[in-house]
Design a protein around this nucleic acid. Structure first.
Lengths: 152, 152
DNA sequence: TTAGCTGCAAATTATTTGCATTCCG
DNA sequence: CGGAATGCAAATAATTTGCAGCTAA
């Protein structure tokens, strides 16, 4: 599915919820699409959309992200550093998309795999909880930071 | 291991890092110990410590939590609602302690199991990343909210 | 027309910091 | 004594909100 089709899907999804795909919202989505694994903060998204739409305001970016999150178009992530990151939800892949967060340099990389398929079934059964999504993050040290640690 | 022993362990751990187990810090730890699965916010911890130590300040609570987190005594969690939650790290159990977050009522429950043992070994190998910890949260609907949904 | 959207500025909220003071090894 | 820790108040930083004007079905 190419970007134009994705955008049209989102437009339809918005209209079903009596919302519009405004230029501002489109710009936000475009920025997210072109920083595919970028984990952008609201401020970063704002700065990027400003290149496409110089008059856009930060509040609009926040409002767009809030709306798009409610419609499950955007996924909001927290890394515990005081600001939220956003990325597009890609319906299938997203579920298998986990993060490796380096406690040395802060780099965030990804690890894609269906790690949790069975586990969710077990939770449904044992905890009587219907799982719709999950967030799995691993903390540790990337290869680069491990070699620095060894120096010390 | 009882609470007094845990406290003495923490005292020793602090002293090894040229810090002291002050009454304020002790109060913070006591509050966390007595709300074992409480996922308390800094503000909630502050209000509870005030009962033990009325003159304590919120900044001190934050500073205590920051220090205790650095020393891996306390674990900081983010649920994407703008504030952080804190809980005591229990060396073994913590690693097997995951959260079920209800998107209906916001309730947070727990699911304890060693779900990720093998996975971490695979990550080390495939991604060249040394995992020291992880955070796994499941989103969905608890039994109570599912029955409400069915009413609708 | 009117509901939805916007930019801007002001407000809010969680968290952090500066500082004078106090405590303890 | 001197580093560590505290309470308070002020400062920050991310996010939200109020509002008057704008836009498109």
């Amino acid at each position: 599915m190419n970007k134009k089709q994705v955008m049209e899907d989102i437009r339809r999804h918005l209209e079903e919820n009596s919302s519009r795909l405004t230029p501002q919202r489109e710009a936000v989505i475009q920025v997210l699409m072109s920083h595919d694994a970028g984990h952008l903060s609201a401020e970063e998204i704002y700065l990027h959309t400003k290149k496409l739409l110089p008059e856009i305001g930060l509040a609009t970016v926040y409002r767009s992200l809030e709306l798009l999150e409610k419609l499950s178009v955007v996924y909001k992530l927290e890394y515990g550093d005081g600001q939220s990151r956003y990325e597009l939800v890609r319906s299938n892949e997203e579920h298998y998309h986990h993060h490796l967060i380096c406690q040395g340099c802060g780099a965030i990389s990804e690890f894609n795999d269906d790690l949790l398929g069975d586990i969710e079934a077990r939770i449904a059964e044992e905890a009587d909880f219907e799982v719709t999504d999950h967030c799995l993050r691993f903390f540790g040290y990337c290869s680069k930071c491990r070699s620095h640690k060894e120096d010390a």
